[in-house]
Computed example of a mutant assay.
Amino acid sequence: MMHINGSCHCGEITFEAEIDENKVILCHCLDCQKLSGTAFRSVVISEPNGLTFTKGKTKEYIKIAESGNKRAQGFCQNCGSAIYATSEEPTNRVYGIRAGCIEQRNLLIPKSQIWHNSAVPWLNEVSNIPAFETIPTK
């Protein structure tokens, strides 16, 4: 088990969580692609009721996922940062915490990929795309 902390982009929401660092997942489902605005999302799974907000409160909405399960999506009402997805039940929640909001994200190495049938076809070619340390100048 690992203790993590994080925040939304604007800082109105801060949190702490107990997670299993062996449960870091890349999700390629269409919901994660749309919600993140990119090709996939990196998620770490919390212990049951393992997420605690130290500042602010998320807004939630319920969406039926590709799996057919109802999923509560939690995000910052001010900046829109996605913080988690979880079951709609208010107790014994296991959170899929969005790794981009976690301070220790560089330590969270993905161990598996899910919904890979929805993965964008160019994903395996990313290492061949030119990379720059910052925005390239002319």
Score class of each variant (00 low, 15 high):
Phe75Cys: 01
Thr91Ile: 07
Glu60Ala: 04
Leu30Arg: 13
Leu26Glu: 10
Gly100Pro: 05
Gln33Met: 09
Trp122Ala: 08
Gly50Arg: 10
Cys32Ile: 02
Thr91Gly: 01
Arg98Ala: 06
Ala119His: 09
Thr38Met: 10
Phe132Ala: 09
Ala99Met: 09
Ala99Tyr: 00
Leu123Thr: 11
Ile97Val: 15
Gly6His: 11
Val120His: 14
Ser67Asp: 05
Val120Tyr: 14
Ala85Thr: 03
Pro90Cys: 02
Cys8Asn: 12
Phe132Val: 06
Tyr95Phe: 15
Leu108Arg: 09
Val126Phe: 09
Arg41Lys: 14
Ile102Arg: 04
Glu21Arg: 08
Gly100His: 06
Thr86Arg: 02
Ile19Thr: 04
Glu12Met: 12
Met1Ser: 14
Val24Thr: 12
Ala82Phe: 01
Glu66Leu: 02
Asn78Gly: 00
Ile83Phe: 01
Gly74Ser: 06
Ala82Trp: 03
Gly37Asp: 08
Glu89Asp: 04
Leu26Thr: 08
Thr52Glu: 10
Gly6Val: 07
Asn78Ala: 04
Thr58Arg: 02
Ile13Met: 11
Asn106Tyr: 11
Arg98Glu: 04
Phe15Asp: 10
Ile64His: 03
Gly6Asn: 09
Lys138Phe: 13
Arg71Gln: 00
Ala119Trp: 05
Lys59Met: 11
Lys34Phe: 06
His28Tyr: 13
Glu89Met: 02
Trp122Thr: 07
Ile102Lys: 07
Gly96Trp: 02
Phe15Thr: 08
Thr137Met: 12
Gln113Met: 14
Pro110Ile: 05
Asn92Asp: 10
Thr14Trp: 02
Pro121Glu: 11
Arg41Thr: 13
Ile13Ser: 03
Gly80Ser: 02
Leu108Cys: 15
Leu51Glu: 04
Phe75Leu: 06
Asn106Asp: 15
Trp115Ser: 14
Cys8Pro: 09
Arg98Trp: 03
Asp31Met: 03
Pro48Val: 12
Pro90Ile: 09
Gln113Ser: 15
Ile25Pro: 01
Ser42Pro: 07
Phe132His: 14
Ile97Met: 03
Pro110Leu: 08
Phe40Ala: 10
Glu60Met: 01
Val120Asn: 14
Val24Gln: 05
Val24His: 07
Ser36Cys: 06
Tyr84Arg: 01
Ile19Lys: 02
Gly50Leu: 10
Asn49Met: 13
Gln33Phe: 04
Gly96Glu: 07
Cys79Pro: 04
Lys138Met: 13
Cys79Thr: 04
Ala131Gly: 03
Cys8Tyr: 12
Gly50Pro: 14
Cys29Leu: 07
Ala85Tyr: 00
Lys63Trp: 06
Ile4Tyr: 10
Val120Ile: 15
Ile102Asn: 05
Ile64Leu: 01
Val24Ile: 11
Ser67Phe: 02
Glu103Met: 08
Ile102Gln: 04
Glu88Asn: 03
Ile135Arg: 14
Leu51Pro: 08
Gly6Leu: 11
Gly6Tyr: 11
Lys111Thr: 13
Glu103Val: 14
Glu66Gln: 05
Val43Leu: 14
Asn69Pro: 00
Leu35Ser: 08
Glu103Tyr: 14
